[in-house]
Computed example of a mutant assay.
Amino acid sequence: MPELVGPGPSSQLPRPIRRHSPQEVPSPPELANADVPMRIWLDDGDSAIDLIDALALSPFAMGTEPWSRTSSLERVLPDAPLMPKTGSLIRVAVENGREARLMRGEGWTLRVIRYRSRSATISVTAVTEELAQSVIDEVAKDAEEPMPPSDHVNMGFWWHNSHSGHRSVRPITSPSWADIERNYSRTVNSQASRLMRITPGEVTGRLVLLHGPPGTGKTTLLRTLAREWQEWCQVDCVLDPERLFNDPGYLMEVAVGYDSGSGDDDKRRWRLLVLEDCDELIRAGAKEATGQGLSRLLNLTDGLLGQGRDVLVAITTNEDLARLHPAVVRPGRCLAQVEVGSLSPDEAARWLGTSEGVGNSGATLAELFALREGRELPQRETAETTGLYL
């Protein structure tokens, strides 16, 4: 067990660890007996979970359990114990939507962190590699929900917590393009159909731009795109795009990404980063309003940052095309540039089955759903201000 001490003079620092030449690196059995001192300094910024993290690592640092394995789980069942049948519960800490547990058994130490998002991280140190893996396997067995039905697709969600970027995977409902193409005007339908059929060999530009008023179905198009591209492209939604382009470290973490594929170069998947409602980032005055944000976005799509990475960026905005920064819409930068607008009066009447309630300017998709459900529509100005998102 490590020695716990408070802040003190430099004389209390642990003695330096002897560094070995390549010929002197100890084998695992020797490592188990290596004299690796460990001390922990605690202050007001440390939490109980931080202490559990340190205690979980101490057998590995001291060399008594020189093998370590870590696994991440998604969609953890609420009643999943995430505990092996044997062993003792040593510590439990709960804070800010996280629960950390520390367990010990014969030859192993287990740390489990469960998150409010229903994901979990399992870390095990053990006296042998086989024992570490067996504990991981036992804890993770039957802990996750079965795969979602075929009308769902897995999507990653990125956000930045107090320390670094975090990615969680969630199944989302995703209709096929054949099921929703009637929800869009003839012009949008033609452009979107080409986008849905694109293959990796046909990728030219790296930016997918969907612009138009609220309630016209831009988000629905992206959900469907995730389904139509699922064989070759992993889709991640960035929940805090304003921070993404203002924090170079976070941007690098997301740009390098998390590949859910096999790691085989022949099967390497593209990645699509979804940024919703990024009006301030790409409008004409973005350079003055967001500083380096626009420059970093452009660098990700066709600059040095994007080189060697199969990354696409999809942006939705309510801005009119004429109000967007010319560098964003220049020829060659966009893989697709789709203006998603209202259905014409004839198209809206055909979708609804009646012309009643359809104005002379047509209707948005959100308005058509409201009419079909018998709800009274707000004034168009209110709809454009508050949004009716789909």
Rank of each mutant, 00 (worst) to 15 (best):
L324Y: 06
P326M: 10
A348R: 10
R333C: 04
P331Q: 02
G341I: 05
L335D: 06
P326D: 09
D320Y: 07
V329P: 00
V328A: 05
Q337I: 04
A348P: 10
C334I: 06
E347C: 03
Q337Y: 00
A348N: 05
P326K: 11
A349Q: 01
L335R: 09
T316C: 06
E319L: 15
A348F: 08
N318M: 04
G332K: 14
L335N: 03
A349K: 01
A327E: 15
V328P: 09
R323M: 13
L335S: 05
L321S: 05
T317F: 09
A349F: 00
S342A: 13
V329A: 09
P326W: 06
P345A: 12
V328E: 09
S342C: 04
V328F: 05
D346Y: 14
R323I: 08
A322F: 00
R330Q: 07
R330W: 02
S344K: 04
A327C: 01
L321M: 13
A327P: 01
N318C: 09
A349E: 01
P331A: 06
S344M: 11
Q337K: 13
H325I: 04
V340F: 07
V328N: 09
R323P: 00
V329I: 15
L321Y: 13
R333L: 04
V329K: 08
T317L: 10
G341H: 12
C334L: 12
P331T: 06
T317Q: 13
L343W: 11
G332Y: 15
E339H: 07
D320V: 10
N318I: 07
E319W: 01
G341N: 14
V329D: 00
D346G: 10
T316H: 08
L335P: 05
A322L: 07
D346H: 14
P331G: 03
H325P: 07
P345Y: 08
E319A: 14
L335G: 05
V340R: 04
L324E: 05
N318Q: 15
G341P: 03
E319T: 01
R330G: 02
V328Y: 07
H325E: 01
Q337W: 00
E347S: 01
H325W: 06
P326G: 11
T316Q: 11
G341A: 13
A327I: 02
R333T: 03
T317W: 11
E319Q: 11
S342V: 11
P345I: 10
E347K: 08
L335V: 06
D320I: 06
V329E: 01
P345H: 09
A322E: 06
A322T: 02
V328K: 10
N318A: 14
A348C: 13
Q337N: 06
